[in-house]
Computed example of a mutant assay.
Amino acid sequence: MLLAEGPAKALTVDAVTEAAGVAKGTFYYHFQNIEELAAAVTVQLGRSFDDVLAPARTEMRDPIARLSFAFTQSLEKAISDTGWARLVVQTSETRNEFGRSVRDNLKAEIAEAIAQGRVTVQDPELATDILVGIWLQVTRGILERVAPPQLSSQALEAALRAIGSAPKSRSP
């Protein structure tokens, strides 16, 4: 997907229609410009994130369990679908509704965990920055090399430590 390869402002309608194998008229029937196309893709990306994370929101009461689920499932999605991962990383470079929605949901989980005394980082915005930063950097690593076994669980453990939440202990 062209939007995953570079910023939307670098795209042209000609490049999009050529890659999609459609006429310019078809593009303009659906979108007025590249920005409108990028916004539609961002909305769809948000839906794909919601599809991955919906089970945690409805079935898990523990905010650390919910954010752990979201973190690991989205990394697993990045490992299995590098096109999706590239698009998420690319869209993270700009302020958009998808990014705000993800951050708002994560911040709510963290605020609940802070209220329960489950994390030592007491600023939900800072804790969100830490988790998103770790997730994005690990995802960039996935795009640059083969993901090692246990990547998601190791990254989660590091992310939880970074916000001051002890991961669940493992059985020997």
Rank of each mutant, 00 (worst) to 15 (best):
W135D: 10
A127S: 02
A159Q: 10
Y28S: 05
W135I: 14
T58N: 02
L156D: 14
R57N: 04
G83N: 14
P172H: 02
L37G: 00
P63Y: 08
S165D: 13
G117V: 08
G21I: 01
V43D: 15
A108V: 13
E36P: 06
P7H: 13
L37F: 11
W135L: 15
S80Y: 03
P55F: 10
E18A: 15
R61F: 11
S171C: 09
A38G: 10
I34A: 12
L156H: 06
I134D: 08
A155Y: 13
V146W: 04
A113V: 03
V41M: 05
I64M: 12
L2M: 02
Q32L: 00
T91L: 10
Q137D: 15
G141H: 08
V52P: 07
S153V: 15
H30P: 11
N105M: 11
R66F: 03
R61Y: 10
L11M: 04
E97G: 11
W84Q: 07
L3Q: 03
R170D: 15
G83Q: 10
I34S: 09
L151C: 09
E59Q: 13
K107I: 01
S48G: 02
P167L: 02
D123N: 10
T139M: 14
I142F: 06
P172A: 00
L106F: 07
D62L: 01
P149V: 07
T128E: 00
S92M: 14
T26Y: 12
T128V: 01
R140L: 12
S48T: 07
L160I: 14
V52F: 02
R170A: 15
Y29H: 05
A158Q: 12
G117Q: 05
P172D: 00
L37V: 03
A15W: 03
V88F: 14
V121F: 04
F49V: 02
S169T: 13
G117T: 06
S152W: 04
D51F: 08
A113S: 03
